[in-house]
Simulated assay, not measured.
Amino acid sequence: MSQRKDKNNGIRSMQGSIRAMEGEGNERKFIISFSSEEPYERWFGTEILSHDAGAVDLTRLNEIGVVLFNHNVDKVVGKILRAWVEDGRGNAEIEFDDDNYAEVIYQKVKSGTLKGVSVRYKVGCWEEVKEGYTSSNGKHKGPCSIATKWMGLEISIVSVPADATVGVGRNMDGDDGLSALWAKQIEVNKNYLM
């Protein structure tokens, strides 16, 4: 097991839990989960985002956090009211804006058409766990790379989530489904970058 510093940014999508808040004045507010410790296959191997105490820096999300659509910085659809870690998951209370574009995404989330959530993050420190070894916190077996210090940069509502372990009504079975889903997410990202 070794430690390495890395300044790479990542994006992790998941079928997030999206729950409408109840009560007067909360019509455009939702509670979402945006990250987990579910292993995720990257080009360099298996990645895990630690949610141990002190691992996740939520400062940026809590101070200037925005909600985007499909990670497009020109498609701001709302704001993050607060973000926190609970039960090994990153959670946030978000509120949709009331402009025309945000209204379209809000209605799709409200109706259940859009259920995917994604977080863009920057990793500050990795723990490399070799095959046959266990992570320093005893939770994960190698080979894997664990982001032991990472910062959330923005949260997106996405049309194609990659991490299907947390969710509302859908689940992917087997590696073939995840591989196909990952390939589709790459295509979606390419289309938005053009």
Rank of each mutant, 00 (worst) to 15 (best):
V77Q: 03
G65D: 05
T59I: 08
S50Q: 04
S33G: 06
V77C: 07
I64A: 12
E41S: 14
H51S: 12
E63H: 15
N72M: 11
F34Y: 03
E41L: 14
N72P: 03
F44T: 13
D74Q: 13
E47M: 10
V67P: 00
N62Q: 04
H71Q: 05
H51D: 07
S35T: 04
R60W: 02
D74G: 14
D57I: 10
I31H: 11
S33N: 02
W43L: 15
T59A: 10
L61E: 09
L68V: 07
S35Q: 00
H51I: 01
V67F: 03
T46N: 13
G54D: 06
S35C: 01
N70F: 12
I31G: 12
E38Y: 15
A53I: 15
H51V: 05
F44A: 11
L61M: 02
V56I: 08
A55M: 11
E47C: 12
L68R: 02
R42K: 13
S36M: 00
I64E: 12
D52L: 15
F44W: 14
V56T: 11
N70Q: 13
V66N: 08
F30A: 01
P39G: 09
A53K: 15
G54H: 09
V73W: 13
R60E: 02
R60Y: 09
L49K: 01
S33T: 08
Y40G: 03
V66D: 00
F34V: 03
A53R: 15
H51R: 08
I32P: 02
V67Y: 04
G45W: 04
G54L: 13
V56S: 05
E41Y: 14
K75M: 07
V67K: 00
R42T: 15
G54E: 10
S50Y: 06
V73N: 12
Y40C: 09
N62A: 03
V66L: 01
N62R: 01
I64D: 11
S33R: 09
V56C: 11
S36L: 03
N72T: 13
G45E: 04
E38V: 15
V56K: 10
E63P: 12
L58G: 05
L61H: 05
G45C: 04
S50W: 02
A53P: 15
I48C: 09
G54Y: 11
L58Q: 04
G45Q: 08
T46V: 14
V66A: 00
L58M: 04
H71K: 00
D74K: 14
E63S: 15
V73E: 10
L68C: 04
S36Y: 06
D74A: 11
E41F: 13
S36N: 07
N70W: 04
E41H: 15
V76H: 03
R42E: 07
D57C: 11
N70G: 11
V56P: 01
V76R: 07
A53Q: 15
W43Q: 13
A55Y: 02
H51Q: 11
I64H: 14
L61F: 00
D57Q: 10
F69Y: 09
S35H: 01
W43A: 14
L61Y: 01
I31E: 08
S36G: 02
D57R: 12
T59M: 09
I48A: 06
S35I: 01
A55W: 10
H71V: 03
V56D: 03
V76I: 11
